[in-house]
Design a protein around this nucleic acid. Structure first.
Length: 495
RNA sequence: GGCCUCUUCGUCUAAUGGUUAGGACAGCGGCUUUUCAAGCCGUUAACAGGGGUUCAAUUCCCCUAGAGGCUACCA
């Protein structure tokens, strides 16, 4: 009953889902889906000190919002409660602690690991010394030589202890990475890592490898920061006589200065981006292309397309700077290309307190759509449209050096023209084209210029020197509001 | 310091032992135009450096440099 492709995303519930983690999760999911395999969510919570209440829910909710859904493992039910699905549970690591202990014991029994009674204080001083001497900071192996009998005695004596890996001290080890091929390490430089802590909990090295084995994980796709731990992991697999999974280490996400993506310089939580209004589909699209690209000449992909095209071996080796400008551009593209209905669904709640006229609100929102980067932008963009009275002191109603009296004349003429249009014709779809034709005809008939007529009209309608064009504004505002504004501007020009 | 990894326009990237080294964001210019956006068109800009291998190297190898990761009883 083992699938050929089983992969897992295994975050720690330390607060929120990092944007880099979202990409790791996505690549795992794309890989699984592409091969018809299984994507699993496992929670690694063996560090009790860093556990954050609600951390698991946060991770699940962020993944869910982005449509990266595990088929197996930890998830949320309809009420938001944590559940586990699948045959390989439990999927919350702290619940597997007895297995981890048993595995560790087996390692000790086969002389692949040993009990260590050294105090943290001693280790600290040891490290200091080594650092000072310019040597690598490695455990000196003091407890390696302890006989099993001695160790048992001290344990019976309730001495605090850990279990360490008994790593080879010479020779080299080769590990294979799907993205980078062979990586070689010198055993002499690899520390006898702790696998069971004083508190009895396993460390990542033991817990992850054993769980990956027990869950029949075929490919471990994780961040580049794990490369240096590869020898320890390979050692554990070999110590148990297991076949290691394939490893793929993903390049890091970077700040603009090429340091590891951090809070100091960027938002790093998926929830931050979602709260700001970035569309999940745009965020996913963006993050997918940070470190991998199916063609190189296309930017917009659906989740399904990404799944079809995903190729783990083509993932880049170097880190990728998180470029907010491109995310913004992508978000704009997504906003422009969604249906009007979807757009309004997202954006209407943001201005619902501005007017009871839903049709008017919708027209306003649609009018500014091309200017929206984030949904929240509509509030400022539609601000003047919803006002009952505009303050014309802030924008010039006259075009260039145009005299006020001329602007008044032009407004008066347009006003007369508009009086004849019915309410219904004013706001019907396509009205803007009719206005454009009629008003330009008027201008032509009178022998006026476009600028000296349209500028005053537009500013009268928008209250701003920079705004959508007057024809769109007329259609959006409707007859009453338009004529009121023109009248008000006419008045303002008299002063 | 040690170990490991990485290195194509400012940024995300594509491609190739022989190309005018392609696309996108940003930038710049133009068109459109009553303004600002949007849109369309155009354009600046890259193979880190040095050695090899080869008829030929951005591509393969080595060295150097730079950047990043790890160096915990965190993951």
């Amino acid at each position: 009953m083992s699938d050929k492709f089983r992969v897992r995303f295994a975050p720690s519930p330390t607060g929120f889902l990092h944007i880099g983690s979202l990409r790791s999760a996505l690549y795992n999911e794309l890989f699984a889906q592409h091969h018809g395999g299984t994507f699993i969510l496992r929670i690694e919570d063996t560090d009790r000190a860093r556990f954050v209440q609600g951390g698991i829910e946060n991770i699940c909710n962020s993944l869910k919002a982005c449509g990266v859904i595990p088929r197996e493992g930890v998830w949320l039910d309809e009420k938001g409660a944590i559940i586990e699905r699948g045959e390989y549970g439990p999927y919350i690591q702290s619940q597997r602690i007895e297995r981890h202990k048993a595995y560790a014991k087996k390692l000790v029994d086969t002389d692949k690991a040993y009990y260590c009674f050294c105090s943290e204080l001693r280790l600290e001083e040891l490290r200091k010394e080594q650092q000072l001497a310019g040597r690598p900071t490695l455990y000196d192996g003091k407890c390696r030589a302890l006989t099993p009998a001695e160790a048992e005695k001290r344990i019976a004596n309730s001495e605090p202890h850990v279990i360490r890996l008994k790593l080879p001290k010479q020779g080299t080890i080769s590990a294979w990475d799907v993205i980078r091929d062979e990586i070689k390490f010198d055993w002499a430089l690899i520390d006898d890592a702790v696998v069971i802590k004083t508190d009895g909990y396993p460390t990542y090295h033991l817990a992850a490898t054993c769980d990956d084995h027990d869950m029949e994980i075929s490919h471990v796709i994780r961040g580049e920061e794990w490369i240096s731990s590869l020898p320890k992991h390979v050692f554990i697999y070999e110590a148990f006589g297991w076949t290691p999974p394939k490893f793929a280490h993903l390049p890091l996400l970077l700040n603009a200065d090429h340091s590891k993506l951090s809070k100091r310089q960027n938002d790093v939580a998926v929830a931050d981006y979602l709260n700001k209004g970035y569309l999940p589909s745009a965020l996913l699209n963006f993050v997918a292309l940070l470190g991998w690209n199916p063609t190189g000449d296309r930017e917009i992909y659906t989740h399904e397309e990404l799944t079809q095209m995903f190729d783990l071996a083509k993932v880049n080796k170097s880190g990728a700077v998180f470029n907010l400008e491109k995310l913004n551009w992508l978000n704009e593209r997504y906003i422009k290309s969604m249906t009007a209905e979807n757009y309004l669904t997202i954006v209407s709640p943001l201005v619902q307190d501005k007017t009871d006229d839903h049709s008017f609100a919708d027209r306003c929102l649609l009018l500014v759509r091309d200017r929206v980067t984030l949904p929240g932008d509509v509030v400022a963009l539609t601000q003047n449209l919803f006002k009952d009275k505009l303050d014309y002191s802030k924008a010039s109603l006259t075009w260039k050096t145009q005299p006020k009296v001329q602007a008044r004349e032009r407004l008066q003429a347009v006003r007369e023209l508009l009086e004849g249009v019915t309410d219904a014709d004013f706001v019907q779809s396509g009205a803007r084209a009719t206005f454009e034709t009629d008003i330009k005809q008027l201008i032509a008939n009178k022998g006026w210029g476009n600028g000296d007529t349209l500028w005053p009209l537009r500013v009268a309608l928008s209250g701003e020197e920079k705004s959508p064009n007057p024809f769109e504004l007329l259609e959006t505002l409707g007859k009453r509001r338009s004529l009121d504004r023109i009248a008000a501007a006419f008045q303002a020009l008299a002063d």
